[in-house]
């Protein structure tokens, strides 16, 4: 690890007592309270996350159907899964969905936060309007979105009846575009929480830096772009990790809005895993899907997280 300014240097101590963690000469003793403090969480995570992930990895290599069966079949489940059109569609959707959902939600969340930060009147009611979607069950908001986006009942019908005959908005009924309709509702659901994370961060930005930039003659847009946004980077990690996790877990929304249709054009790996596990009695393949999701998550998130940690260490 790099030289962290945040590191508590335990060694030289005027009074010698140094609290509990300064007493020990060995590293272990010195850090004992911190270790002790995180150990319940760590133990729980090792069992409930990594233990179960290992279980899943094992099952993905097994012949399990309805109940776990520990006879190994090698990579058969993975081969069969990657040979299935349904999985290929789901995996493709995940890439598109994650990219769009994360980027658009971050952008909309940041935009809302910046707008709300302009000393607007009615900030509290506005904030609640942007937050409420997270509170209401997706099983039902998904139905409302389904109706709104269906050209026969929702926005398109409304615009046409209002006199705009050529208006078309039919993403949800077309296989090629249905995933964008899901993105719209998913952004709606989480942008409010992300904007609150950003709003909080914005209000913690060092005023001196902003003042200096303004005195240098930077306009508001430049000030945001080159001073304020870089300063709230930690909020981007929180929001980014959160959104990637939500993207991977998006389930109810798809089930309620499109039932994975048309056909299975809006299937996602999460719905695939569920269907294989509980509807089609293919536990082995479900596990293979779950492991693939984890690998996908690790590939997109790990480099970023490690890079970010290095950077914050270096500060």
């Amino acid at each position: 690890m790099s030289q962290s300014s945040l590191r508590v240097e335990p060694a030289p101590h005027p009074r010698g007592g140094a609290g509990r963690f300064g007493r020990g000469r060995s590293g272990l003793g010195r850090h004992a309270p911190a270790w002790l403090a995180i150990s319940p969480s760590l133990l729980a995570i090792l069992i409930f996350v990594y233990g179960f992930a290992l279980w899943t990895a094992y099952v993905s290599l097994s012949a399990s159907r309805m109940v776990p069966d520990f006879a190994l079949v090698g990579l058969r489940n993975y081969e069969r899964m990657w040979g299935q059109d349904r999985w290929l569609v789901a995996a493709g959707n995940l890439v598109t969905f994650t990219a769009l959902y994360v980027v658009v939600t971050l952008a909309v969340g940041l935009l809302i936060a910046i707008l709300l930060d302009q000393k607007v009147r009615g900030e509290t009611p506005l904030r609640t309007i942007f937050l409420y979607p997270a509170a209401v069950s997706l099983i039902v908001t998904g139905i409302a979105w389904k109706w709104l986006l269906n050209p026969g009942t929702g926005v398109e019908a409304f615009m046409r009846s209002a006199g705009w005959e050529g208006f078309a908005f039919d993403w949800i009924i077309r296989s090629e575009t249905v995933i964008y309709a899901i993105v719209v509702a998913a952004v709606w659901q989480q942008a409010g929480f992300v904007s609150v994370l950003f709003l909080a961060a914005l209000r913690g930005v060092d005023g001196e830096m902003v003042k200096a930039a303004r005195l240098d003659g930077a306009g508001p847009i430049r000030t945001y772009w080159s001073v304020i946004i870089p300063a709230i980077r930690p909020a981007f990690i929180s929001a980014g990790v959160l959104l990637v996790a939500f993207a991977l877990k998006t389930f109810d929304l798809v089930v309620a809005m499109t039932a994975q249709g048309p056909g299975y054009a809006s299937a996602l790996p999460s719905t695939f895993v569920y269907d294989m596990a509980f509807q089609r009695n293919q536990l082995g393949m479900a596990a293979a899907g779950a492991i693939s999701i984890l690998v996908f998550a690790a590939i997109i998130v790990l480099p970023y997280v490690v890079w970010e940690f290095r950077k914050s260490d270096a500060r």
Partner: peptide, 12 residues
Amino acid sequence: IILGCFLPLQAV
């Protein structure tokens, strides 16, 4: 710990 965010819960 952070990687735990991504565990697909249906699978476990």
